[in-house]
Design a protein around this nucleic acid. Sequence first.
DNA 1: CTGTTAGCGCCTTCAT
DNA 2: ATGAAGGCGCTAACAG
Lengths: 351, 351
Amino acid sequence: MPNASDSLPKPLKSHRATGRVTLNDVARAAGVSASTVSRALRGERAVDPALIERVQAVSDKLGYVPDPAARALASQRSNHVAILIPLLSNALFVDLLDAAQTTLRAGGYQTLMGVTHYDPSEEEQLLREQLLHRPAGLLVTGLDHNAATRKLMASSQVPCVHLMDLPAAQLSDAPYCVGFRQTDAGAAMTRHLLAQGRKRIAFAAAQLDPRVMQRLYGWRHALQEAGVYEPTLEFLNPAPSSLALGGVLFEQIMQQRPAVDAIFFCNDDLAQGALMAALRLGVSVPSQVAIAGFNDLTGSDQMLPALTTVRTPRAQIGQAAAQMLLSLMRGEEPDSPQLDLGFDILQRQSS
Amino acid sequence: MPNASDSLPKPLKSHRATGRVTLNDVARAAGVSASTVSRALRGERAVDPALIERVQAVSDKLGYVPDPAARALASQRSNHVAILIPLLSNALFVDLLDAAQTTLRAGGYQTLMGVTHYDPSEEEQLLREQLLHRPAGLLVTGLDHNAATRKLMASSQVPCVHLMDLPAAQLSDAPYCVGFRQTDAGAAMTRHLLAQGRKRIAFAAAQLDPRVMQRLYGWRHALQEAGVYEPTLEFLNPAPSSLALGGVLFEQIMQQRPAVDAIFFCNDDLAQGALMAALRLGVSVPSQVAIAGFNDLTGSDQMLPALTTVRTPRAQIGQAAAQMLLSLMRGEEPDSPQLDLGFDILQRQSS
DNA sequence: CTGTTAGCGCCTTCAT
DNA sequence: ATGAAGGCGCTAACAG
C-alpha cells in the first residue's frame, strides 16, 4: 500500500505558504517523487503506464493545477503565444486573431496580442516585450519587418509563423507562412473586370501596406498584359481605410476621370463607401461603372448592388497558422513551410 | 570603493546558465545586494536616492530586464491583466478591447484576452485559466455572471472592473464599473422617436444579451409612459446579430405590421441591414418608417439615409476602466466605484 | 535604509 | 524507469 498516507495533507506552513496544491503534494500523496509526477503529468515518455494513471488520479483528487510561472521559470518556456497584428480596427485582422486564438487555446496556449499600428518600430518594441514572457511560439502578420525585428525573431529561437503573405518564390530556407498570393488575387480580380468588357479600370487604395501594394502590382500586371495599363488610373491615399474615405475617393475619381468604367478598391471598406456614395450621387453601378472590393467583409453581400469582391480565407489562415505553430512547438516539421490557402473571386451585382 | 570588482563579470557557468543578465549581475556590478537592486528598480521607497541612480545606471549599462516569470513566481502576481469579452465579431467589444489594451500597455501590463461567446460556463472556464497566471487585474464585460464566476472573482482577490454596464442603483458595496445606463439609453431613443411624432414604434433585437434586454426595458418604459405601449411590437430573435438578420427582421416587420412608423433596432448592425433592405424593397425611410440603431458603429453615418443612432462611448469606457484598474492595482481607491460615461442621441436622416 | 536568508513551484541534469 | 539534488530569477520576511 504505497498510498497509506494520502489523507490529512497537513498544510506544512512555511513562512510564505500560498495554500496552493503543489507538485510535491501530489508526489507525497502518490508516494512517488516530484520528478515522476512532473513527467507523468506532462506525458513525457519513459514512465510506467500504471504509475501515470495513479498519479493522474491523485492529481485530480487533490485538484492540482500546474503553476505557469514556476513552469516558465524552470523550463524557460511559457505557454504563451505572441501574435502581432497591425490593427484591431480592421475586421480582417480581428478575424485572424479570433481564429488563431481559438485554435491556440484548444492547444493549451494563451494568446498575447500586440497591435503594431503598421509601425515597424512599434512592432519591434512589442516583440521585445512579448519575448520577455518567453513565448512558446510567435505569429506575425506579413513578411516585412525591420532588421532588428528579424534579428530578435531569429535569435529568440521561438518558432514563428507568418500570416497572410507568401514569399514570391518557394524558397528552401523560407520562413513558415500561411496565406495566399496577394499579387495573384489583385491580378485575378482585374482580369475578371477585363473579362466583363471593362477597359478603363482604376485602382483605388488606402493605407498602402505591403499587401495593398502587392494587389496594386497584380492590377498593373493584368492591365499591362491586356495592353491597357495607364499609370494615371492609380489613386493611392496613405490615410487609414474607411467607408468615408471610399466615398471621397469615388467622388474624386468620377470627377477627375469620368470615363472610368470600373474601380477596383484595395479593400471592402473603401468599396462599400464607394457604393453608398454612388447611391447618393446617382451614379449607376454597374452600368456606368463597376465596383470591386477585396476581402469580402461583413455587409458586402448586403450592399445595393451587392459587392463583387475577393473572398480571402482569413479565418482559415488564422486557424491553419495556429495549427502549423502548434506542430512546430511540438517539435514537428510541417509538410511544407508554406501553405497557400488561395482566394475566390466573388462576382456579385456590382460588376 | 564598493565597486572595486565590477569589471570582468565572470559568467560563472552553472550547469544550467541561461546567459541572461540577472538581478544578481546588476547587484554585483553595483556593489550592493540583490534586494536593494530589486527595491531600487521597482521604485519601492526607502532606498537612498543616490543608490537608486547608481543602480539604474548599472542596470541600463548591463541591459538588465526583469524576468516576468521569476517575478510572478516570487511575488504571486504577474503583470498580466485578464479581460473577458463576449465576442470579437462585434466591433463594440473590439473597440473596448483596443482602448483597454492600449491603456494597460502604457501602464506596463500585458493583456490576456478571453472570448466568452456569451456563455457563462465558458466565461467561468476562461477565468479559471486566466487566474492561473495570477493576473494583477481583471476586466469583465457586464454585471451578470454565474455563481462560480462571481466566487472565483471574489476569492482571487484580484481587483476587477466591470465594463459597459452600471448597477441599477448606486449601491455602497457595488462593484467597480464603467459604462452607462442601457435602460436610459433605450428610453431616450424611444422618446426621441416619439418626439418626432412616431406612434407605432417597434423594437427589434437579436442576440438578446443582458444589455439588449435593458434597452428593451427602456423602450417599454418610454412607450408606457406615453401610453402607446403594445407588446406585439417587440420582435426578439436570439440569433447572433448581423446585417443580414437586420434585413430579414425589417422585411418581417413590414409584412406583419405595415402600419409601424418607426423601428428601433437594438444595434447598428441590424439597423444598417434594415436600411439596405428598405432600399431594396423601395420602402422610403424615414417618410414611411423611421429607423434607429444603437452604438454608432462604422458606416452608420455613410448609410443612405444616414442612420439615427445612440452614440456610446465605448473607447472611453475601455480607457477609463483600464485607468480605474491601474489605480486599483496601485492600491488606490477611485473617487467613485461607478463611472457613468453617458451616451448621446445622434439624430441623422433616418428619423 | 540595506543586507541576509529562504523560499515561490517546477523542471532537469545526473545518478541509480 | 525512477529518485535526489540543485537551480531558474526574483521577492519577502527579518534582522541590523
